[in-house]
Amino acid sequence: MTTWKTIASSTTTPKEVKTRAPATVAASPCTAAKVTVETVAMLPPDRTRTTVGVGEKVKLTYSLGSAAWTASKGTLTSATGQTVTFEAPDQAATVTIKATGGGCTCTLTFTVIEPTGVRMERKPGSGIQHTNGIPSVGIKTVIFLEPDTVSFQFIQISEDDCPGVVTGYFVGTPLDGIRHGSHGAGTWVPVGPTIAGKGSRVVGNDTAQSGHCNFGTPYSNGTFDWAIPWKFRVGGGADKVFATVHQRFTIDAAGDMTVSKAGASGAAGLTDPSSTY
């Protein structure tokens, strides 16, 4: 009788390895929640900026529909809605804005800045005001509020009163201590769009004129200076001084005069022909 021995095969079929698919987690709706920023001012061209000028207006839109809005400073046109307009406060500040809707909350921070300075240039195409044979000089200027990175077109500006300070030839003359209050101070002027590299353009022009300075001969060196406070306000709100602008005139022994104001300047010699702006 033959006996058979069963020998196990050296190869085996591996068992099927089964893996479990990762669990799918639904995306939170809040990942789509955001606030879109669009400044009302068309210039500067970056209308999504969160650094704005005092009084500047910004349209805010919540991506998930209607929301409840709050602002730590400044004002909102509405406390609810998908789109509201934020008006920046009338002084420098950091403002937190929150929009809550669809079970989500978005927070946005604005930096509000005040004008930091005044820049003037001679009005394009204008001349020098001067009367031949009489010490006199005058210029017309265009005005910009710095910086140019925001819009100040929602504010007004005004010059304030100050006394004239004189040296040399002008001491003891009618210019000695003359007040600026009766020469253009106190008038509130609106501001227009921002010009790149210059600032927000003030509506209207400024005149810096010495008048006739023939206070007798011999002429001699002398200076006249108005250190003029410049103020801004938002709407009919409180005003605030933000800069001091010097309007200066000089005269020399020849009777020649110069004028300067916030970067703009002009000169007229005593014997120059009469001219106007």
Rank of each mutant, 00 (worst) to 15 (best):
Pro124Tyr: 01
His183Thr: 07
Leu145Trp: 15
Ser72Trp: 13
Cys30Ile: 02
Ala33His: 09
Gln82Val: 11
Ser182Cys: 11
Thr83Asp: 02
Gly192Glu: 06
Thr24Cys: 05
Asp148Gly: 08
Gly65Val: 15
Gly263Met: 01
Ala26Gly: 01
Trp4Tyr: 09
Gly184Ser: 08
Thr250Gly: 00
Val189Thr: 14
Ala92Met: 07
Gly237Ala: 09
Ala93Glu: 01
Ile178Met: 14
Val84His: 03
Lys240Ser: 13
Ala21Asn: 11
Ala253Asp: 09
Lys57Met: 15
Gly74Gln: 07
Asp206Met: 03
Thr217Leu: 09
Ile155Gln: 00
Cys104Gly: 04
Ser126Val: 02
Ser274Pro: 05
Leu145Pro: 01
Asp272Trp: 05
Thr131Asp: 13
Gly55Pro: 14
Thr36Asn: 09
Ser10Thr: 11
Phe232Leu: 09
Phe154Arg: 11
Gly138Ile: 04
Pro174Arg: 03
Gly255Leu: 09
Tyr169Lys: 04
His212Pro: 00
Ala71Ser: 13
Trp188Phe: 10
Ser265Ala: 13
Ala8Asp: 15
Ala262Pro: 08
Cys213Asn: 06
Lys15Ala: 13
Ala8Lys: 14
Val241Asn: 03
Val37Cys: 13
Thr109Gln: 14
Leu60Ser: 06
Thr13Pro: 08
Tyr62Phe: 15
Val25Ile: 14
Ala93His: 00
Ser275Glu: 07
Thr75Phe: 10
Ala93Val: 00
Asn132Cys: 12
Gly236Pro: 01
Asn132Asp: 09
Cys162Val: 08
Thr12Phe: 08
Tyr277Lys: 05
Gly127Asp: 04
Arg233Leu: 02
Pro135Cys: 10
Trp69Thr: 00
Glu87Gln: 10
Pro174Gly: 07
Glu38Gly: 04
Gln156Ser: 09
Ala27Leu: 15
